[in-house]
């Protein structure tokens, strides 16, 4: 059934940054999204990038065997979201795939949510695979922590972010990367005012909270490493109104000191 000739897949790609050398490259999660797009729609799946991204980095996506990458020119200071919304409104699309967050710049991971909000499409986060599409609905396999999976049925069109659990991106090759077209269009360039005021400093590694496991045997350790965390004071709220659920979340955030 794959690749599906009628399916319209667009993958939003950004220029990544190698963690050691800082060099521009294809972003790892975005590349996995491209791989998934290739599986579903073959070389007809579209690549979209907003901004004045580095050419070497972008060409690595073309090196995966796609003939064209649409580069929506919006300037380095522009907000990517309005340009993408405009692009997606004018180009019929069934599925939008992208990584969870960019490897450089703001990297807030907000783009898919903002797009979903403005287009009115569902957003599925951290998917590992899309298994099939039937009657306008896709069976999407979502990756949960510790190797768990959840199967969701999502109506088209939708937006999905691709988790590291998805199949690894194929090798990019020099020949197709060189031949691929970087097609440029001009997009809505709305300057991201808020961001202009920010200052950037290199990130410091965050201290990790150690999880002390008091296990006596290998089996115990294995369980501790793989089992779903049980309870731990958490609470699953199924009933109640949205407002009550939101209040419960707010309460938790205040008690954890996230919101003051």
């Amino acid at each position: 059934m794959w690749p599906d000739p009628n399916l319209k897949v667009a993958t939003l790609v950004s220029v990544g940054q190698h963690p050691k050398s800082g060099r521009a490259r294809r972003a790892e999660q975005d590349a996995r999204a491209v791989e998934l797009g290739l599986k579903m729609a073959g070389t007809r799946s579209r690549l979209v990038n907003v901004g004045a991204g580095d050419e070497t980095g972008l060409r690595q996506y073309l090196g995966m065997g796609l003939p064209e990458l649409m580069q929506v020119k919006a300037g380095t200071e522009a907000d990517a979201v309005p340009a993408l919304v405009e692009h997606l409104k004018t180009h019929p699309t069934d599925i939008v795939l992208t990584g969870i967050r960019a490897e450089q710049g703001e990297a807030s991971g907000m783009v898919p949510y903002l797009l979903g909000e403005q287009l009115g499409w569902p957003v599925v986060s951290r998917i590992a695979d899309i298994q099939k599409i039937e009657d306008g609905k896709a069976d999407v396999l979502q990756a949960l922590p510790r190797g768990q999976r959840r199967l969701l049925r999502v109506p088209l069109p939708f937006i999905a972010t691709v988790d590291n659990a998805a199949p690894e991106a194929r090798q990019y090759a020099y020949g197709p990367a060189r031949r691929g077209q970087l097609a440029e269009t001009n997009g809505t360039a709305i300057v991201d005012e808020a961001r202009l005021e920010w200052q950037e400093t290199p990130a410091k590694p965050r201290p990790k909270r150690l999880n002390v496991v008091k296990a006596k045997s290998a089996a115990d350790r294995f369980k501790a490493a793989t089992a779903k965390p049980q309870g731990q004071g958490g609470q699953v709220i199924r009933d109640g109104t949205d407002r009550e659920k939101a209040e419960a979340i707010m309460e938790l955030l205040i008690s954890e000191g996230v919101v003051r």
Binding site: K20, S21, R25, R170, Q171, A173, Y174, P176
Partner: peptide, 29 residues
């Protein structure tokens, strides 16, 4: 390698490292 992108096993990773870090192991240059 250059047209099909099918260098087997660790080939793709090593080449990727060479491109990104100038050494086959992907260490900090």
């Amino acid at each position: 390698t250059l047209e099909r992108g099918e260098t087997p096993n660790k080939g793709a990773e090593v080449l990727d490292n060479l491109i990104a870090t100038d050494n086959p192991g992907g260490y900090d240059p």
